[in-house]
Amino acid sequence: MPAPHPYAALLDEIPVTRREAPVLGGTTVFWEYGPADAPVTIVAVHGFRGEHHGLEPVVAYLPDVRVISPDLPGFGETAPVPARRHDLALYAEWLTDFVAQIAPGAVILGHSFGSIVVSAAVAGGLATPRVILVNPIGAPALEGPRGVLTRLAVFYYWAGARMPSRAGTALLRNGVVVRVMSVSMAKTKDPELRRFIHDQHDTYFSRFADRDVLHDAFVTSVSHDVREFAPQISQPTLLIAAERDDITPIEAERVLAGLFADANLVEIPDVGHLIHYETPQVAAAAVRSFLGLDELGTR
């Protein structure tokens, strides 16, 4: 039985429409939340192995904002881009084309792996008035507080890509491994919230198209970080970081903030790499303040 969704009642009040768009020769599936005539539009880019559902808890606290939330190519309902390697260049090009077609001039938000994609795209010329990075990857993943686990992950994805197809795919979708990942990231001691987080990962963490796309995306996630692109981003940037993040320590996030021309760092205590699940209301409040929205839409 699925775990109770703690943000369902709020989401039920927000209109949502599933849409599709041709991008780079493929079809990108995305969801549009909130009023079409909202004063602000945000394009929200999810993290590694995730899809659009992961950012819904934050959307739940932005009822008066138009949020465009696509599934990245090769994840969720969006098929891989034909005849392309799914590296950072591909994802940055895809995001730039997607935004130009669907929401030109939108604020761009990226979570985790999405923070790398967003930063690369904006540094490469994606036009946007403001940038929001949640749990930004602000240092090499292999140097994080759990570098040993990251090295194990490198071996895991390498093995999944090298084994015979059926066995490799089964390994990469193995429920026990997914649960270990989920347990390692969750910091909340609320049993119901932990159950929800694990259910979300069980349901959506293996919705990748194939092992090649997953491997390409993983290699990208551990080969790049936001520091590469921060000095080239002139737009006002909001960094929403967690004090207990096991992937990028908060000290590294503070250094990262100094690399931008104009950055504001919000630090959230008692949470790790799952701000979007554990403290979405706090994250949404930071977004509202950064965008200058009034308090009429808060809940």
Score class of each variant (00 low, 15 high):
78 T>L: 03
75 F>E: 06
79 A>T: 10
67 V>Q: 01
84 R>Y: 00
76 G>W: 07
84 R>W: 01
81 V>S: 09
66 R>F: 07
69 S>V: 15
82 P>N: 11
60 A>Q: 01
85 R>L: 09
59 V>Q: 04
87 D>P: 02
65 V>H: 08
50 G>F: 01
57 P>S: 10
78 T>W: 00
88 L>V: 12
53 H>V: 02
51 E>M: 10
69 S>E: 13
60 A>K: 00
79 A>L: 15
61 Y>A: 05
63 P>F: 08
82 P>Q: 13
55 L>K: 01
79 A>I: 03
84 R>I: 01
70 P>K: 06
90 L>H: 15
52 H>E: 02
68 I>Q: 12
85 R>I: 11
55 L>M: 07
52 H>P: 00
77 E>H: 14
77 E>Q: 15
81 V>N: 08
54 G>I: 00
78 T>Y: 00
83 A>H: 14
57 P>V: 07
88 L>M: 14
74 G>L: 11
74 G>V: 12
76 G>V: 07
71 D>Y: 08
87 D>I: 05
72 L>S: 13
61 Y>S: 04
65 V>F: 09
70 P>L: 10
62 L>P: 04
90 L>Q: 15
57 P>G: 10
88 L>W: 09
64 D>W: 01
71 D>C: 09
67 V>G: 04
87 D>V: 06
70 P>Q: 11
90 L>D: 09
53 H>A: 04
87 D>W: 05
69 S>N: 15
86 H>Q: 12
75 F>L: 15
88 L>Y: 13
89 A>S: 14
64 D>V: 06
60 A>D: 02
73 P>D: 09
54 G>C: 04
89 A>Q: 12
81 V>R: 07
71 D>V: 07
70 P>R: 07
61 Y>G: 03
76 G>S: 12
82 P>K: 09
53 H>M: 01
61 Y>Q: 04
82 P>S: 10
55 L>E: 07
77 E>R: 15
69 S>Y: 10
86 H>D: 10
65 V>W: 08
87 D>K: 04
76 G>L: 07
